[in-house]
């Protein structure tokens, strides 16, 4: 007797597939499938926005007030950008020093940088800001004038320095990973040619590392712009007021907190959206060199995209995707803060 495959073997009762939809249901489904997904998502967003607006207009919502104060709040954007640029510059310097320290065999360098990253990643940013602003003068009180006055900083200065140190600690990991991502063969070749550590770093390793570091640094900048709102909390003057600070002051005095804060939120939202757009373009440009096949014809004037590690043969050479190695866990304290990263 011929046995059929599967015969005699217990099988769970196969689900009988539902009959395909027909008639009106089928027409609706086809129509639905033809609408582009993006359009549908756009409609969803529009619906959410309408619901929110309707909800607000039920209460005591003063649109005129918003129009009157729009300029004051939006003006703060310049402050935000200014603070962020200064802070990110400082943070980059700190991160570079920190990363070299984390990679160092020197116990002092390693220890200090380890302490730095652990403390500034392990404590809340807001606490750090207040430490710079309120605690530093108290330390300064131990000294005689005029020295003690150097310890008294304005809210703006304390805020920017605080953010710089905080972000520098997180960016240390980025820089460290970037430096380590440069293929070890590069270092060996430079060493074999008789280069000193400094020459190696300056001429061979860091130029290649920077390429890897730039995209994540761009992301840090965008996150930083939001965190600069905390500086206002220290009590900046109106001249140095970011959108959140302006919204706080104006909103409280006119009892229009909802209007004010929504505007401030929208301003930050727009800010991050704009910069994120350019960030994505930057990332695409930087990653062009990492993907094989995107090479311009010989003689083209367009910049040659180099790939760290592609100037090497063997398995994995010539077109590999460079991955950032996982950052180490270096001790207690959360590595990514709950600070809007």
């Amino acid at each position: 007797m011929k046995t059929e495959p599967g015969a005699g073997v217990d099988r769970p009762s196969a689900a009988v597939p539902a009959p395909p939809p027909h008639g009106l249901a089928r027409q609706v489904e086809d129509f639905n499938a033809r609408i582009p997904f993006t359009l549908k998502v756009g409609l969803v967003w529009l619906a959410i926005a309408v619901l929110i607006v309707l909800g607000f207009s039920q209460g005591d919502f003063d649109v005129q007030w918003m129009r009157d104060h729009l300029w004051r709040i939006t003006k703060g954007v310049w402050v935000t950008i200014f603070f962020s640029v200064i802070a990110i510059t400082m943070a980059v310097i700190l991160a570079l020093v920190g990363a070299l320290g984390r990679l160092s065999k020197n116990s002092i360098a390693y220890g200090v940088s380890g302490f730095y990253t652990s403390f500034f990643r392990g404590t809340p940013l807001i606490v750090q800001l207040f430490l710079w602003y309120l605690a530093l003068p108290q330390i300064g009180a131990a000294f005689r004038p005029p020295i003690n006055e150097y310890f008294i900083w304005t809210a703006q200065v304390a805020g920017v320095v605080g953010i710089a140190f905080n972000y520098g600690a997180y960016m240390t990991e980025i820089f460290r990973a970037g430096i380590q991502a440069v293929p070890h063969g590069q270092t060996e070749a430079a060493e074999a040619l008789g280069m000193t550590y400094r020459q190696r770093m300056r001429k061979v390793v860091l130029p290649q590392a920077i390429r890897i570091i730039i995209p994540p640094t761009g992301n840090e900048f965008i996150a930083m712009m939001k965190d600069t709102a905390l500086i206002g909390l220290l009590g900046t003057t109106l001249f140095w007021a970011d959108p959140f600070r302006v919204a706080q002051l104006d909103g409280k005095s006119d009892f229009r907190n909802l209007e004010a804060l929504i505007m401030a939120a929208l301003v930050y939202w727009a800010l991050t959206a704009v910069f994120s757009f350019f960030q994505r373009r930057l990332e695409n440009r930087m990653s062009k060199g990492y993907v094989r096949g995107v090479q311009k014809p010989a003689g083209s004037k367009a910049g040659i995209r180099y790939m760290p590690g592609s100037a090497g043969g063997g398995p994995g050479g010539g077109g590999m995707m460079v991955e950032m190695p996982e950052p180490d866990d270096d001790g207690p304290g959360p590595e990514t803060g709950g600070q809007g990263h």
Binding site: P183, G185, Q186, E188, A189, A190, E191, A192, L193, G194, K203, V204, P207, Q208, Y306, M307, P308, G309, S310, A311, G312, G313, G314, G317
Partner: peptide, 16 residues
């Protein structure tokens, strides 16, 4: 190292 030049299996040319 200044007296001994080395050629690597993976070439290790500087891409930039």
């Amino acid at each position: 190292r200044l007296r001994a030049g080395m050629v690597f299996q993976q070439f290790n040319l500087f891409p930039q």
